[in-house]
Design a protein around this nucleic acid. Structure first.
Lengths: 156, 156
DNA sequence: CGGCTTCCTGCATCCAGCTCGCAGGTGCAT
DNA sequence: ATGCACCTGCGAGCTGGATGCAGGAAGCCG
């Protein structure tokens, strides 16, 4: 997968998406193209509902269940993955998103990504001590972001 | 709260539960007593459904929505808290539960608790770098436990 | 002990966020 | 060009709760 430029030519990107789908033994359908494109275009994270909306801009008749199934298929073959950032939300992103963890503020909902460099020592410690290979991408860490902590300290 | 013995006198525990409820401005009702008792008796973590079942052993006519509301009330005043260990489960336990985090194996579902000592350096790093005060108790960390990692390594 | 206010409970209903069974349509290997 | 396996749309169903309402009980005050 070529991702040299942050914003590659669109037709080219579409063909890449095709290849990506087909290379995993899935059939190329307009719905899948549009779904994968929508996730990629969401620049980071998108909920299933947002993806449905986005897909419908191109394919107005798409059924939500198709999008859900497509997301599941794409995840199963490893093209996508999803994460839980809060009680209800579940967001999808393209699978190459690597080992980044999400910090979500319980008060204001702000989200921040944490690179592998920060999680690595902790992951290593968990593996050393418990033999546990942590995958931090799946669940966010809740807490208080900097500005809310400041406000909270004043309020309390 | 005296927790010297692992299995204290039962009547005494009940009275403690009463006090705990009343001292937070909530009315003592049989449903709340039974709910709190059920969570405490679950020895660690229990899903809402498990708690309903347990409460009904004492009070067969309890409505599930009462239990849900009771759990929410008890959580609001800080007697209980809940955590998400997987896609569907949501488990309750007594107290602010300290700062322990849960490691959940994606393959076998095994759960393990991690003490504050292990999370502390990571939390400190998050605060230092992002000003983020992490609360690790809410979401588990998924991954592969020791035995599944071993099996997985053989299989792959 | 008894009244009165306020909070709590049970019931029924509703909701989000998926999930599934089915019938018909479509990609694509040949 | 053909055939079949896979995919889609539709609608119903499901899980895990949330909520509005009317009646009931806790407990403060006397």
């Amino acid at each position: 997968m070529k991702t040299k430029a942050p914003r590659p030519d669109h037709d080219h990107a579409l063909r890449e998406i095709d290849d990506l789908i087909r290379s995993h033994g899935l059939r190329r359908t307009p719905q899948r193209q549009a779904t994968l494109e929508a996730v990629a275009a969401a620049d980071g994270h998108a909920t299933a509902e947002q993806i449905v909306t986005r897909v419908r801009r191109k394919l107005p008749a798409v059924s939500p269940s198709t999008v859900y199934r497509t997301l599941a298929s794409l995840e199963e073959v490893g093209i996508l993955c999803h994460a839980h950032l809060g009680h209800t939300a579940s967001v999808y992103h393209v699978g190459t998103a690597g080992l980044h963890q999400h910090l979500v503020c319980e008060r204001c909902g702000a989200m921040q990504e944490v690179g592998e460099a920060q999680t690595w020592p902790f992951a290593k410690e968990l593996e050393r001590r418990y033999g546990f290979r942590a995958n931090f991408t799946h669940f966010a860490v809740l807490g208080e972001c900097r500005s809310c902590a400041k406000k909270g300290a004043a309020r309390r």
